[in-house]
C-alpha cells in the first residue's frame, strides 16, 4: 500500500513536515456514498464542483468528477481534518478571484476552456499546496467510484472490480523452463564452515 507514493515530486512523509498528505491519513471516507456538503457553503461548493469537473471532465461513457461526488468527498475530508480547511477555503476563493479578474464572471459561469486556463494560472501561483490537495482528492474520489470503474471496463476492458471478484488464469507451464533448467548453476559455492567457529 505504498508504491503509489513514489512519484516525481513526491516528498517523504515524515513526522517533522506536516502537510495534507499526512493529515488525511485518519480520514477514511468511503468513496461513492451519497453525502451532502457539511463544511462548504453553497457558493464555495459550486465552485469546487466546477473545479473538480475541470480536473477530470466527462468523456465517452465516463462522467466528470463533479458528478460522481468528488466535491462532497473533499468536503467530507476537510470536515474530518479541520486543519486543512483553511487551504481549501483559500484555494476556492483564489480560483474565484482569478476567474473574475480574467473574465469578469464567476468560475462556474466560465466555459470549459476558460476554466482550464483559470486553474492553470492559479496552479502556477499556488504556494499553499491547495491545488495539489484538491487534485489528489479528486483523483481518489473518481477512481474509487464504481460508476467510473464500470465505465472504464466498458470502454477499454480494464476490470477495476476484479480485486473484489477474482478471475481464472492459465496455470504456469513448467515446460517453459526447459532451456533454463539445462543451464549451468549460476551461484557461487561457499566452502561450508570455512573460517567459522566450531
Amino acid at each position: 500500500m505504498a508504491y503509489d507514493r513514489k512519484q516525481g515530486q513526491y516528498q517523504v512523509a515524515q513526522s517533522s513536515r506536516p502537510d495534507y498528505r499526512l493529515e488525511v491519513g485518519r480520514a477514511e471516507i468511503p468513496v461513492g456514498e451519497p453525502r451532502d456538503f457539511v463544511v462548504l457553503d453553497q457558493a464555495r461548493a459550486a465552485t469546487l464542483k466546477a473545479w473538480t469537473s475541470t480536473l477530470i471532465p466527462a468523456a465517452g461513457r465516463r462522467p466528470d468528477a463533479g458528478s460522481v461526488g468528488a466535491p462532497e468527498y473533499i468536503d467530507a475530508t476537510v470536515h474530518m481534518v479541520p486543519s486543512i480547511q483553511p487551504a481549501l477555503f483559500h484555494g476556492i476563493d483564489e480560483v474565484e478571484t482569478v476567474a473574475r479578474s480574467r473574465t469578469g464572471r464567476a468560475f462556474t459561469e466560465c466555459g470549459a476552456a476558460e476554466r482550464e486556463e483559470i486553474l492553470r494560472q492559479f496552479h502556477a501561483a499556488d504556494d499553499t499546496d491547495a491545488f495539489n490537495m484538491v487534485s489528489d482528492f479528486t483523483y481518489e474520489a473518481y477512481y474509487g467510484h464504481p460508476k467510473v470503474l464500470a465505465a472504464i471496463e466498458a470502454e477499454n476492458g480494464w476490470r477495476g472490480t476484479a480485486p473484489m471478484t477474482g478471475s481464472a488464469m492459465t496455470p504456469f507451464d513448467p515446460a517453459k523452463l526447459d532451456r533454463v533448467r539445462s543451464m549451468p548453476p549460476l551461484y557461487r559455492t561457499v566452502a561450508a564452515g570455512k573460517g567459522r567457529k566450531a
Binding site: 505504498a2 513526522s15 491519513g25 477514511e28 474520489a141 474509487g144 480485486p163 473484489m164
Partner: peptide, 22 residues
C-alpha cells in the same frame, strides 16, 4: 481490497507510512 475503493483506503487508513496512518 474488501471494498471497491480499495486504492483510496490504501492511501489513508491503511497507508504504509505510520506518519500518514497514525
Amino acid at each position: 481490497k474488501a471494498h471497491v475503493d480499495w486504492e483510496v483506503r490504501g492511501r489513508r487508513h491503511w497507508a504504509a507510512n505510520p506518519n500518514v496512518r497514525r
